[in-house]
Every structure is written in structure tokens, then in C-alpha cells.
Amino acid sequence: MIYVDSLRKDFGNIKVLKGITEKITKGEVVAIIGPSGSGKSTFLRCLNLLEQPTSGTITVDGEVITQKGFNVNALRQKMGMVFQHFNLFPHLTVTENILLAPIKLKKLTADEAEKIALNLLKRVGLTEKANSYPAQLSGGQKQRIAIARALAMSPKIMLFDEPTSALDPEMVGEVLDVMKGLAADGMTMVVVTHEMGFAREAADRVIFMDDGIIAEKGTPSQIFQNPQNPRTQSFLSKVL
């Protein structure tokens, strides 16, 4: 589904990604862990071209998205993204947040749109907040709405950039539950996370990044119970 080949990304003189090659198959849930500054988020943001790679290629659904003239907007419609800081649109209600992209891009009728919004709100358990503004929601609720908004375009892939890092501890669970539900439904997910519990339980595969490269990858049990790379061992000993 996603194939990344020798991906590099520089910011000025700083080399953030130093050659990443990775394959993510359909329906797979991949957790990316690693110390801060290791390039996890940059890697994720390259996947939907929020960051333009310096070199290397990314192929999604058989299309080389890194080639010149590629229709980036169409790509992003099939790749939802959830951000650390939610980035809900504060001037729009919850329903308007969810429906902005489908209405502008799919020309839905009012009925169809309402159905989509209601279904998504049910899925994240927030039907009663349909007409609230983001400022009236808790952090966990905001992130669940952000997930619903990202799902509104019926994406094939969901990218999560530290979705629980900005939340109060008691709200992490509700967001992870929604994500686990998505994973169980067979969504292809790439999740940059510090939630080792989530990586262990919900991920099919764990990628450990350090200093701009993939230092180690494997199943959760391989990575968490029997890490081979000393850097993985030292990282896990600090966070677990």
C-alpha cells in the first residue's frame, strides 16, 4: 500500500531523515516509536507530503507521489491525518469541522452530509457535541472529533502524529479506544506515538527510529520483549 524508498529529508543543513526504506501493507497498523528528534514526525509528514522529501520516492497505491506534478490534494483525500494539537477549526462547530472537506470536495447533499456526520460522531461517541464549538470540548473530545474529521473523506490510510501527547493522562484512554476500534476495522494506520501500551497491544508492527534512520523493526513482542539494537534497548529502558 505504501512503499518508501531511500527517503531523505534535510532542513537546511540538518539531515533529519537519512535514508528510510519501508513497506506498509494494507490493513496494517504500524507504530513508530523513538526518542524526540529522531525524525518520526517528519517521516509521517512526508507520507502525505506535508513535508517535501529532499530525495527518495514514496509510492502509495501504486502511484509515485513524489514525482513532479502529482495531484497532492487527491492523495491527501485518501490519507487522513490526526495531529498532536488537534488543529480543529475553532470558528466552526463540530459538525462543520467534520463536513468541511466532504462538502467542498464531494458536493454532498445536505442529507448525505448529515448522515456522514452522525455516523462519525457515533463512532467516536460524541453525538451530543454535534453543535458545540471546539473551545467547549475537552482535549480528549477534541482529538476524537479530529479523528472523525479525518475519517470524513473515507480515507484508506490514517496517519497519527502523536495523537495523545497533548492530552491529560485521564483522556488518553478514550482516544486510544477510538484508534483501537479503527485498527480492528482493518484501517491501514501509521501511528507516531509515545504510548508503548498502544504500540504493544494494537500495532501489528513496531518501527523504532533513531537519528533519522529505522534502527529496528519487528512485531511488538520482538521489539518490546527482545530488542536487538542497543539503542532500542536503552530507549525502552527509559520509557517502560
Binding site: 490534494n73 491527501r76 485518501k78 487522513g80 494539537h85 488543529n87 477549526f89 467542498k104 473523506m153
Partner: peptide, 15 residues
């Protein structure tokens, strides 16, 4: 306006 707003908009596929 926070840059995250723009990123959220384009990440949804809006131009």
C-alpha cells in the same frame, strides 16, 4: 492563525 490550521486543511485534501 496557527500554521496547524493550514496543515489540517490541506491534510483533508482541500487545496
Amino acid at each position: 492563525v496557527d500554521i496547524g490550521q493550514t496543515e489540517a486543511g490541506i491534510s483533508l485534501g482541500l487545496s
